[in-house]
Design a protein around this nucleic acid. Structure first.
Lengths: 184, 184
DNA sequence: CAATTACGCTACCGGAAGTAGCGTAATTTG
DNA sequence: CAAATTACGCTACTTCCGGTAGCGTAATTG
């Protein structure tokens, strides 16, 4: 056990996750989710394709890890519910608007519909943490928070998918107003 | 000209669109969007794959046509705004919950992020009609109606994508309440 | 030194989207 | 009836992508 603390023998892993993630988002931004092939990502990251598969079991897993890294921890900045929700929504909108993030999200998202294993990864690694944090901070039921996440992320991603562009400022504000209206 | 009314010469097209659409949704429901290959759809419909490509230029186009057929015209049943919106949202939720429809929608949706041509098809053939009808019935600006569609469809599809299951009754009711709260 | 593990590389497999070309079936027109 | 025309089924093919296997080599520990 203690896989993380044991130095173990052998050549250590090179520090290239950051390069790979950056190359992944760049590729998705430039060629779209389907066009961002593992070969292209590998070349863009200056890494062998086999190295990618040594670290992530599939393209979906790589993209999900990339998204987890891109989003990072949820910004729980306040104890005021309105302020907390406002910040969180603006944060989500900004993240989705980052180059490649929205397309990557939508892509892995759809693959997940067909792929239960990927859905599991997506659910536990990406959604669950935010679900817990928000549930705790808002003191709401899991069902309510799940609903809120569906509304917020669903709206942002739908706009991204239909128009190809992230949601504009004033629409984000409308989204905030709507959600605040429900969660008070 | 008059392509639709001219009987023209030659063998007429067989009446198999309905069979193809049904086979498409069945395949998507059973194998997921990615797993519903053109070969499988063709076999399921009892049709040659080349025939599919004679009628639709790509898999995305076929699925979109299938969705257009599955959704049909928007149900504008009332002049009362609340009743109209309520009916429309319940109708959308029910459609997304139909076998294969949600997965097909999510799939073509994500392909569209990477594929501008498909996004054009999706936008003009699927979204635009509803946009117009709702804009007319509600007397709202295009921006507002577009936002409403993003919220409604985005929420329903996000739930479908994350959980693999359509949204439950009471969550749909919450969605209705939320949207009504904004559009009054 | 040996042992161990990671990396790069090349080559490959399986499968799916989409295409080409042929023979044939079902029509309209003369 | 015959010719022209268009659609269908079928087989075969190309291209591309996700994912795997195996080898030589580099970096680390003991």
């Amino acid at each position: 056990m203690q896989a993380s603390t044991s130095p173990a023998a052998g050549r250590p892993r090179s520090d290239l996750n950051a390069d790979v993630f950056a190359a992944t988002l760049r590729s998705v931004d430039e060629f779209g989710y389907a066009g961002a092939t593992m070969d292209r990502i590998a070349v863009a990251a200056g890494v062998a394709k086999t190295t990618l598969y040594r670290r992530w079991p599939s393209k979906g897993a790589l993209i999900t890890a990339c998204l987890v890294e891109a989003f990072g921890p949820a910004p729980v900045v306040s104890e005021d519910r309105d302020e907390l929700l406002t910040t969180a929504i603006r944060w989500g909108a900004a993240k989705v608007a980052e180059p490649g993030v929205g397309a990557a999200f939508a892509g892995v998202f759809t693959d997940a519909v067909s792929d239960p294993a990927l859905r599991e990864i997506l659910s536990t690694e990406l959604q669950a943490p935010y679900l817990r944090v928000l549930q705790d901070a808002l003191g709401e039921s899991e069902q309510r928070v799940r609903f809120a996440i569906d509304v917020i992320m669903g709206t942002l991603l739908h706009r991204m998918g239909i128009s190809g562009e992230p949601m504009a400022e004033d629409d984000v504000e409308a989204l905030i107003a709507m959600v605040l209206g429900v969660f008070r």
